[in-house]
Design a protein around this nucleic acid. Structure first.
Length: 994
RNA sequence: GCGGGAGUCGCCCAGCAUGGUCAACGGCGUAAGACUGAGGCUCUUAUCCCUUAGGGGUUCGUGGGUUCAAAUCCCACCUCCCGCACCA
């Protein structure tokens, strides 16, 4: 019952302002009038702004909305600033996730089908069509587009495209041939995490549990066994080869003898398989038990020395080759295993071995001196480790490795690498053993990673992989130059861009699977998604002229198949003669020139919006590729970066179940409130914390604005009350309007959106309240023309942020045009009255002071005497201000010295030095702006605002019999029984209350 | 390891770029009052400590420094978070 009652209250207020209805109403009107479509207008400044296009593999959630909303605010703002704004949108079909989704549908993956049915509410017949990846992309494409419209984004949809359209592919082919001609595409080998079943590289989002595959690089040290065999041992610390005392083998497992690159290696079967992926040529010859090798000798080829092979249970067949070298002085595992073995008489008797190993110390650090027992022994004692199965051994190992890695120095008497740091020694030994073929490199996954398909992943060396060489020094220089010329908002993130440009090197640019464009010179490969999305902004000015279906061909449309490199060279770079291009492409010269002109008009990009997660990849590539391909006058002008969206303080994720689909949120609360919440809850680079409590708060704020303006209009529209004589508060509110235009515009220019909204939603309100307080104390109506200006400005300032709401109010205010197309408010200098700030400030201060006094004394005021400062104090105040502002003198002593000789003020200064001190403090505690303002003031008669405030004092004290008297301190007839007047200071009148 | 960022009044969070308007915005919580049949709604007020005249004291991770003046600038330290590649 109660719940119903609540709902009916909600509904009642909803009736007043039906967000769904006004959204639909204005979307329709905007679309009918095509107001967001932009064409070349030679006499109008253009503004071309783009956002990273979405990847349509799911519906958008509120997190996606932030970047787009911000860009839309930008577009709407610039439009009102009289720019011919182009704000287009495309859809990024390129890549593998959509393809693998379709495969999961094909294999009836329950989890995915559940998601589609339960969460996205997609009908079954549509889901079954998802066996075709393009159907998935198209479905979410339309879904996202609908959401963007419902959010009120002012997009020119005629330019929409997908990245697998024929025309786009032609364009990407051109881009890649262009890069290749410049020598920026190279071919090479590279180790990657790999799914053997999918035959494809894997990274974090391809794995079960989203685990990032971590690659480690082992050095395989090749020991010889019986002349013809090789026993390779994997190590991360090749420098410790000098301290090897023995090898460890697991006696309980089967090993294989395999031909590896024409040598006979003894390794585990697992290792043989891993080596195959690393492009070793491997074939298994026979099997051998670990125990067969125990007690035998292996030759360390580096020191030409034989070491025994001992058994150890800690040797993991899945790790490395399944045989490891033992360095008991520096490896706690090795030390402990030896110790265990010594005690294990049964085993040594079984294999007939005698353990008489002496650890060989190689490295010393501050924590582990060379004159003590070996570091491994010390740390084992310290951790009180029992045996080789003790879990603390792992921690001890990490601790020692890290200490030696950072602070270790090789002992002076060690061959070749004596006195070198561990890092230097490692590098040297590594190179040497590889050069002499005593060792080689092996990659392995540090962690057990499974592909989404369930298969265990391995490391694979991809050969003939195509890379974009971002490491090219000349190219880097150009990228830096582009960055330096560009505006980065917020500026704090510029350094991050520098760092990224600095460390980018070769990056793979093609894959074997997924949607996208084929590499033009090698059809095996498909251009990767982060490579085909870097200069596509250039495609927007032409996309509406290109069609992919020949049957739709008309005079002013180009069939995609007719596009060739000459076309793009001409349109984008001005290369080639239009006559020649026309002949080779079936496109008329006239039409070519039209398109070229349109490109020249709109390009370069004036602003690129994106989330900050794209800084280290997309945005950096965007910079690089523009630098490589386009002339400097076509380089982008600005990047705007924003933080992500949290849901009630937590990252949005499927597992937390806190992903809110954008369209649901719109349906529930209306687009305007959602937009404002995303934009107002954090400054641009911060993560914004989204919650429905906040949305409700914002929405009720909008209701309040709606009601206030509604109430105002119902009175104002009847009598069009134009003030004949402006009173103090009228002048003030007029000044405040100018102030807000100035401040809010400046905030938007710098993308301090939170600040701008704070002005519009909250600060304007508190001014409005003050104005109302002043008017009602005087028993006057505030429904006048000034208040009308106030609301008009407020709604205009708000309109880029809450477009539907503002259009509705704009109409309610009697306008028949679109606020979206109206002019941004301009500051009117003739309406700026600095003095009005001091007037109202004085009134607010006097009320505050009276409140403080009555609070402490608990007097109920019947009479209030206010004493304004004497003439001489006013003169002195101005002199002090001048000293502080013009000569930067703030020291009390220096001031006193100067003023005791100043005939105008010396008597007062000598008599009341404490008041001088107070006046200096008064000035110093004002902001620079206030000080300058007061310095500019030719005169300020405090009596005028004080007199004007009497009505307010009466209403504030709640005593309508209150008597207020205002005296000058200089007035000899004043009533001043407690001698308060002498405390008066400029802008700080003295008060006496009875 | 490399790079980036953060620590603010019970909690969340603004301010720091351009030092003074800062005992420090706003929200939550808490307390009192108004409204109401009653409220979990809404509104008003208070919310670091002391104070019978508008005042004083101590605060912005820790410790120093610069300055007439520091949450804000500089140095050192402590703690926490994020990104690091073949993926959108």
């Amino acid at each position: 019952m109660k719940r119903m009652a609540e709902n009916s209250i909600e509904k009642a207020s909803n009736l007043e302002l039906d967000w769904g209805r006004i959204g639909e109403k204005w979307r329709k009107k905007w679309a009918e009038n095509n107001i967001f479509e932009s064409e070349l207008e030679p006499n109008k400044k253009k503004y071309f702004l783009t956002v990273a296009y979405p990847y349509p593999n799911s519906p958008q959630h509120v997190g996606h909305g932030r970047t787009y909303s911000l860009a839309d605010v930008h577009a709407r703002y610039k439009r009102m600033k009289n720019y011919n704004v182009l704000f287009p949108m495309g859809f990024h079909y390129t890549g593998t996730p959509i393809v693998s989704m379709s495969q999961r549908i094909l294999s009836n993956d329950k989890e995915l089908i559940d998601t589609f049915q339960q969460i996205y509410k997609i009908p079954n017949n549509v889901i079954s069509s998802f066996k075709d990846p393009k159907k998935i992309a198209r479905f979410f494409h339309e879904e996202i587009k609908q959401g963007m419209n419902e959010m009120g984004y002012s997009i020119d949809w005629r330019r929409e495209f997908t990245t697998i359209d024929n025309g786009y592919s032609k364009f990407i082919s051109w881009q890649f041939r262009n890069l290749r001609e410049k020598g920026l595409i190279v071919q090479g080998s590279h180790p990657v995490g790999w799914c053997p079943r999918d035959q494809n590289p894997v990274s974090q989002h391809d794995t079960l549990g989203d685990i990032e595959p971590e690659l480690i690089e082992y050095v395989l040290v090749k020991f010889k066994y019986e002349e013809q065999y090789v026993i390779p041992t994997a190590t991360l610390r090749p420098e410790t080869i000098l301290g090897v005392t023995n090898l460890w083998i697991n006696p309980d497992i089967k090993y294989v003898i395999a031909s590896v690159n024409n040598e006979k290696w003894i390794i585990t079967r697992e290792a043989a398989r891993k080596l195959e992926f690393l492009n070793f040529s491997v074939s298994i010859i026979s099997e051998i038990y670990g125990s067969d090798l125990v007690g035998k000798l292996a030759l360390d080829q580096f020191r030409k020395k034989h070491v025994p092979i001992y058994p150890a249970s800690f040797v993991d067949p899945n790790n490395g080759t399944g045989i490891v070298m033992s360095v008991p002085a520096h490896s706690p595992y090795d030390y402990q295993a030896l110790d265990d073995l010594k005690k294990d008489v049964n085993t040594s008797r079984k294999y007939d071995i005698i353990i008489d190993i002496v650890p060989i110390k190689l490295i010393h650090t501050d924590l582990f001196h060379s004159d003590e027992s070996s570091p491994a022994e010390s740390i084992i004692t310290r951790y009180s480790i029992r045996d080789q199965n003790d879990p603390k051994l792992e921690e001890a190992t990490n601790k020692l490795y890290s200490e030696e890695f950072h602070n270790g120095i090789l002992l002076p008497d060690i061959d070749i690498v004596g006195n070198l740091s561990v890092l230097e020694a490692r590098k040297m030994i590594r190179e040497k053993i590889i050069k002499e073929d005593i060792g080689t490199i092996m990659y392995e996954l540090k962690n057990q990673v499974k592909c989404r398909c369930g298969a265990s992943c391995v490391v694979k060396i991809l050969t003939n992989q195509w890379f974009i060489n971002y490491g090219d020094e000349k190219w880097k220089k150009l990228a830096y130059e582009l960055l330096d010329r560009m505006e980065i908002l917020p500026e704090e993130i510029r350094q991050e861009f520098r760092n990224v440009i600095d460390w980018l090197k070769e990056r793979a640019c093609a894959r074997k699977t997924g949607l996208g464009t084929k590499l033009p010179w090698d059809n095996e490969w498909i251009i990767e998604s982060l490579a085909d999305s870097v200069i596509y902004m250039a495609y927007y000015p032409l996309s509406k002229y290109i069609i992919n279906d020949e049957s739709q061909k008309t005079e002013d449309r180009i069939f995609a198949d007719d596009l060739n490199d000459d076309f793009f060279d001409y349109v984008f770079l001005g290369k080639k003669e239009p006559n020649v291009v026309s002949k080779n492409s079936k496109i008329s010269k006239q039409f070519l020139e039209k398109i070229r002109n349109e490109f020249l008009y709109f390009y370069p990009v004036d602003s690129r919006h994106s989330g900050r997660d794209l800084v280290p990849n997309h945005l950096a590539f965007f910079i690089f590729n523009h630098a490589a391909i386009f002339d400097k006058d076509k380089w982008p002008k600005q990047i705007v970066v924003n933080g992500s969206v949290l849901m009630q303080g937590k990252k949005m994720s499927k597992s937390l179940g806190n992903i809110i689909p954008l369209r649901h949120a719109i349906e529930e609360y209306g687009a305007d409130s959602i937009r404002l919440t995303m934009l107002a809850s954090a400054e641009i680079l911060q993560d914004s914390d989204f919650s429905f409590d906040l949305v409700k708060g914002i929405r009720s704020k909008l209701y309040e604005i709606y009601r206030t303006i509604g109430a105002h209009m119902s009175i104002f529209s009847k009598n069009q009350n134009s003030l004949e004589q402006n009173e103090l508060e009228d002048i003030w509110i007029s000044n405040r309007i100018q102030h807000f235009i100035l401040e809010t515009t400046a905030a938007i220019e710098k993308f301090r959106i939170r600040e701008a909204l704070h002005n519009i939603l909250y600060l304007m309100d508190s001014d409005l309240q003050w104005y109302q307080k002043r008017k009602s104390a005087k028993n006057k109506s505030m429904q006048n023309n000034l208040l009308n200006d106030f609301f008009e400005v407020r709604i205009k300032l708000l309109s880029p942020f809450a477009p539907f709401f503002c259009e509705e109010i704009w109409e309610m205010m009697g306008n028949h045009s679109f606020i979206s197309l109206s002019q941004w408010p301009e500051v009117n200098n003739s309406k700026i009255y600095p003095k009005s700030e001091d007037n109202e400030r004085l009134i607010q201060d006097i009320i505050l002071d009276i409140q403080k006094i009555t609070k402490v004394t608990k007097i109920v005021p019947k009479k209030i005497m206010i004493y304004t400062a004497s003439q001489v104090k006013t003169i002195l105040y101005k002199k002090l201000l001048e000293k502080i502002q013009r000569q930067s003198i703030t020291n009390f002593g220096i001031m006193m010295k100067e003023f005791v000789n100043d005939s105008e003020v010396k008597d007062f200064v000598k008599r009341s030095p404490d008041l001088v001190k107070k006046m200096i403090d008064d000035i110093l505690s004002e902001s620079i702006e206030v000080r300058e303002r007061r310095l500019q003031l030719d005169s300020f008669n405090e009596t005028i605002p004080l007199q004007d405030s009497i009505s307010l004092l009466i209403s504030e004290t709640g005593n309508d019999q209150l008597k207020v008297s205002i005296y000058s301190e200089d007035n000899n007839d004043k009533y001043d029984p407690k001698q308060k007047s002498k405390f008066a200071r400029p802008f700080k009148p003295a008060i006496y209350i009875e």
